[in-house]
Amino acid sequence: RVERIEAQKQPKGLSAKTVRNIHQIISSALKLAVEQRLIAHNPADGCALPKAERKEMQTLPVEQLTSFLREAKDSGVFALYYIDLTTGLRRGELLGLKWSDIDLEKGDLRVQRQIGRIDGKIIEMPLKTKNAYRTLPLSADAIDVLMQQRRKTGNSEWVFPSPTGGPMSPDSVLHMLHRVLKRAGLPKVRFHDLRHTFATLALQNGVDIKTVSGMLGHFSAGFTLDTYAHVTTSAKREAAKTMGNLLSGAV
């Protein structure tokens, strides 16, 4: 990984998150070995782990979404970003969509693969976890957007093809995003923040945490709850306020 073209200008070594994930896997295997009395103790216990790095989450507020989508439409990339905002797909998952994954009559979308870049080559890759393989419902508006996109793509098997007909580059959609944001007069956000925007708006509008977790392809609702604790904490306060107003006459 360190020797790849993409890593040439990046800091060498593994990220704190990757190190912690590797430790967790090794520790779980050694714990089982202890339970089966193959070894006396778990040597992974007590390891000094790097602190988890948390990149600041940013979202596009509702009042900014209109400007963003208007500019995306003027730039000819409306479908790409609209579908991402209505499904919460990861960038690679979005670019990995094929028309065979979408049933416009039933109104569902199957996440089956992702697109990545290794040594400068755009390649089709399996998803990282079994939870990432999922089927998502599509709203009526999303179906209409995809029907229009279908007419634009012609014979390409990819929902969002590159000019050459193959899958789009993950880098190009990020550059495109920043260009659209700049033209709309909005602050720069990461592509992953569109996924955060989807999750935050869903939770703020009453979608339960388990449903959101399943749509995001997370391994557990607990992980989703931890990631969006700031949103659920706010919702709990609103719930307490609502109940207080309902029961105030009884005090």
Rank of each mutant, 00 (worst) to 15 (best):
R1A: 13
R1V: 12
E3I: 10
I5M: 12
I5Y: 11
Q10H: 11
Q10N: 10
P11S: 08
K12C: 10
K17S: 15
T18E: 12
T18S: 11
V19C: 13
N21L: 14
H23D: 06
Q24Y: 06
I25S: 08
I26R: 01
S28A: 14
A29N: 06
A29I: 12
K31L: 10
L32R: 07
L32S: 10
L32T: 12
V34R: 04
E35W: 00
Q36E: 15
R37L: 05
L38R: 05
A40H: 04
H41G: 04
A44C: 11
C47D: 09
A48T: 15
L49A: 14
E53D: 14
R54H: 15
R54W: 06
E56Y: 01
Q58Y: 12
Q58T: 09
T59Q: 10
L60Q: 07
L60R: 03
L60M: 14
P61M: 14
Q64G: 06
L65P: 00
T66F: 08
T66Y: 08
S67E: 12
E71N: 06
S75W: 09
G76H: 06
V77E: 07
F78P: 00
A79H: 03
A79Y: 04
L80G: 03
L80T: 09
Y81F: 15
T86M: 13
G92P: 05
L97V: 13
L97M: 13
K98Q: 15
W99C: 10
D103Q: 05
K106D: 13
G107M: 04
R110S: 13
R110F: 09
R113H: 03
R113F: 07
Q114T: 14
Q114C: 08
I115H: 02
R117C: 07
D119G: 03
G120N: 01
G120Y: 09
P126W: 12
L127K: 00
N131C: 06
T135H: 03
T135V: 14
L136K: 02
L136V: 04
P137I: 05
P137W: 04
S139R: 03
A142N: 03
D144Q: 14
V145N: 09
R150E: 11
R151I: 12
T153S: 15
G154S: 05
F160G: 09
F160S: 09
P163I: 10
T164M: 11
G166V: 07
P167K: 06
P167E: 09
D171K: 02
L174A: 09
H175D: 13
H175F: 05
H175K: 05
M176E: 08
L177I: 00
H178V: 02
R179E: 10
G185D: 08
G185Y: 02
L186N: 05
L186I: 11
L186H: 02
P187H: 07
P187K: 01
R190T: 07
H192E: 09
D193F: 01
T197S: 11
T197F: 01
F198N: 08
A202L: 04
L203N: 01
V207D: 07
D208Q: 01
D208V: 01
I209N: 01
T211W: 02
V212F: 06
G214A: 14
M215T: 04
M215H: 11
M215V: 10
H218T: 04
S220W: 07
A221W: 02
F223V: 15
T224I: 00
L225C: 04
T227Y: 00
Y228F: 11
Y228Q: 03
Y228N: 08
V231Y: 00
T232R: 02
K236H: 06
A239I: 09
A239V: 11
T242V: 09
T242Q: 12
M243D: 07
G244F: 05
L247N: 05
